[in-house]
């Protein structure tokens, strides 16, 4: 059997001038033999970025009512509905059992404000509270998640010591008993998590929290407050790959701004690109993403 040609540093050098995502895009495109050029004829995927200038609270989130408004605005814009509850009713049905997959990382969690804003709208869509659960590390043992017919995926984006960035795609790693089984090639194939029976076809909405993203990490915990900033945003999409690719562009722009050069992430976040080109979970190419921007633009970086 012929093995494929490896992608080497020299391939990277050939395309280094293509742009800031070259290091991510080109190797992944070459792996699959697909062209990295945009497929213009295909429909674009919508991603909504909403930002609000309100001060953040001690937990790193804007006030609850502001978060609710941000989420509502984003979901309305995403689905083209004037009314937020009506929009949510197209996402979840009253008879659904809904798991809200959150992220409880000590330093930058999803935040209760985001969790509760999602839960409130799921309930407004007719789902009773006993059929809704919010969980992260306990999803495999959670009876609601075990019976879930719908999932809402919400987590912050941060740089990550092994996968490049902690992403929406990666947030489902708690649906396996041994997350380390997905660490190979620096988490290249995380998108396969989305084929697990507990997950497949159930995700109705993805919310990438960008209130205080981490753009660089140090030490065993890969965290230093110095490398976070108040971006005050949410990225919302039906497509987790498109949302992650958008968040990644912001993280990379912040790194360029902070470090003064195009410093690559410590680990290549190629799992986002491969989620598109290898696993067909969604769209990572910015040219195929329709980015809708809401709210204040200062320091938007994208």
């Amino acid at each position: 059997m012929m093995s494929r040609k490896p992608i080497t540093r020299r391939d990277f050098l050939k395309v280094a001038s293509v742009g800031p995502l070259a290091g991510v895009l080109v190797p992944a495109a070459a792996r699959t033999g697909r062209s990295p050029l945009p497929r213009q004829a295909e429909e674009k995927v919508r991603v909504v970025l909403v930002r609000d200038p309100s001060p953040l609270g001690p937990g790193g989130a804007p006030p609850a009512e502001v978060v609710q408004r941000m989420l509502d605005d984003a979901v309305r814009a995403l689905l083209g509905e004037r009314d937020a509850v009506k929009a949510w009713k197209t996402l979840v049905r009253a008879e659904d059992v809904v798991g809200i997959k959150t992220n409880a990382w000590r330093y930058i969690p999803t935040t209760p404000e985001v969790e509760q804003a999602i839960k409130r709208r799921v309930m407004d869509a007719g789902v009773t509270e006993d059929r809704i659960a919010i969980d992260d590390q306990g999803v495999l043992r959670n009876p609601v998640f075990q019976k879930a017919t719908a999932l809402v995926n919400a987590r912050p984006m941060r740089s990550h010591h092994w996968s490049g960035v902690g992403s929406l795609i990666k947030n489902y790693i708690m649906f396996v008993p041994r997350p380390a089984d997905y660490h190979g090639d620096t988490c290249a194939d995380l998108a396969t998590l989305w084929d697990l029976p507990a997950v497949k076809g159930k995700t109705r909405l993805n919310v990438l929290v960008m209130f205080t993203p981490l753009f660089h990490g140090v030490g065993p915990h890969h965290y230093a407050k110095e490398y976070t900033w108040e971006y005050k945003g949410l990225i919302v999409s039906r497509d987790p790959v498109a949302a992650d690719a958008t968040g990644l562009r912001i993280i990379q722009a912040k790194r360029r701004e902070f470090f003064g050069d195009d410093r690559p992430l410590q680990m290549t976040p190629h799992h986002i690109q491969l989620a598109d080109t290898r696993h067909h979970l969604g769209v990572s190419d910015p040219n195929r993403i329709e980015l809708v921007k809401l709210g204040f633009e200062e320091g938007i970086l994208i």
Binding site: H161, W162, P220
Partner: peptide, 12 residues
């Protein structure tokens, strides 16, 4: 170690 520092445990 993954219970403590997630995927960063791979480095150690």
């Amino acid at each position: 170690i993954f219970d403590y520092i997630d995927g960063a445990g791979e480095v150690y």
